[in-house]
Amino acid sequence: MPTSPTDIANLYNILGAGELSRLDTHPVELLVTLRTIREALPQAPQRIADVGGGPGKYAFALADQRHLVDLVDLSPGLIQIAQVEQDKRNAAGQKSLQSLAVGNALDPNILRHGIYDAVLLLGPLYHLVEESERVNAVANAVRLAKPKGVLFVAFVSISAHLRDIAMRDPSRLIAEKEFYAKYLQDGRYEKFKPGVGNVHSFHTQVSDIRSFFADNFADTLELMELRSQEGILGGSLDSALSKSQPQVAQAWADLMYEKYSTGEEHLGCADHLIAVLKKKDL
């Protein structure tokens, strides 16, 4: 059954400002991801499409680095939060986004085709439970990119959810035995949560990410690297760093990036995994 965009938008309308602050409490994920983007795009300004970028945490950080960023997200509530930040920056004469709008990663005409040096898909694939939808979202991102443009595509690891319930509610593994037997097979997490509504999310394994691109995009994309966005500090092990001095958090993020984010033995430690891909010049 196709994912309901209304349900996803409603979920993030409810989460609201909490989505903006989430990365503040997980600084390694934020800093490793920004470095991953910076290493792939060493020169600024580059034109970047941030598709499904929520309230713009990454988009504004990249604008601060002089990149030209267009932000699109499915949630009107999150775009409204981004607009408040945009207005503040414009009033202060600070660097801001080129544009921001409500839009769906599954819309082939979400932005202009073939003009972007980079396309970020750091959120949409978390919530597209059908593989055909994930293929569609990535194909749309490919259309936006220039030849040799770079795509950054993020996934949530199945390990992330298992660690979470082990810490918070371990009895669920038995109480919801049939649900978890299926979940471990297909990565689909679809539930109704009181006060939130229908939650659709998709979680995956490292090997399945590689297979996804090899099976569907061998002719159009080259997988440059697959990286753990938390290094070995998945499962909220980086949360204490949110209270540290910025240079301390940066030092840990640099260590994770350089030593603990691409080795096969470390990828399973991630809550989030980012694939860096280059569009082939056909």
Rank of each mutant, 00 (worst) to 15 (best):
A214Y: 00
P170F: 04
G197S: 09
G235F: 00
P147L: 01
G231W: 00
N198S: 12
E178G: 09
D219W: 00
D219K: 03
A175W: 04
D208C: 09
G231I: 00
G235M: 01
D215T: 15
V206T: 14
V156G: 09
V206H: 09
A175D: 13
L151Q: 00
N216H: 15
K182I: 11
S228R: 05
D219Y: 00
S157R: 06
R172I: 04
K182F: 02
M224Q: 14
P194C: 08
A175N: 13
E222S: 10
E230I: 06
P170G: 10
I232C: 07
V196S: 07
K177T: 11
L233N: 05
A218N: 14
K148G: 12
Y189T: 03
N216G: 11
K193P: 11
H161Y: 07
S157C: 07
F192V: 15
K177N: 10
I232K: 05
I174M: 10
E178D: 14
L233T: 07
L223G: 09
E190G: 04
T220G: 09
V150D: 05
S171R: 11
Q185R: 10
H161M: 07
T220D: 11
L233M: 06
H161G: 06
G234H: 02
I165E: 01
D215L: 09
R168F: 04
F217E: 02
Q185E: 09
L173E: 10
I165R: 02
A218Y: 04
K148C: 11
K182C: 07
H161R: 11
G231A: 02
Q229P: 05
S207H: 13
F179W: 05
K148N: 15
A160R: 04
K182L: 10
F217K: 01
I209E: 04
F213A: 13
R168A: 09
S228Y: 01
D215R: 15
A166N: 14
Q205N: 12
R210W: 05
E176Q: 15
V199A: 03
A181G: 08
E178M: 05
K193S: 12
E176Y: 04
V196C: 06
D186P: 14
K191P: 03
R188G: 06
E190A: 06
R227I: 11
D186M: 06
V153G: 11
P147T: 02
H200W: 06
A160P: 07
I158H: 04
F202K: 04
N216S: 12
F155Q: 01
A160T: 04
D164C: 07
E190H: 06
L226H: 07
S207F: 05
D208H: 10
G149F: 03
L151K: 00
G235V: 01
M167A: 13
S211G: 13
S211V: 15
D208E: 15
R188L: 06
F179A: 07
T220Y: 01
D219V: 02
A181C: 05
E176I: 10
F192M: 11
E190V: 15
V206W: 03
M224W: 02
R163G: 05
D208A: 10
S201V: 03
D219P: 02
F217A: 06
E176D: 14
D215W: 05
D219R: 02
Y183E: 05
L221R: 00
E222K: 12
Y183N: 08
P147N: 03
V199Y: 01
A175R: 14
F152D: 02
S159A: 10
H203Q: 14
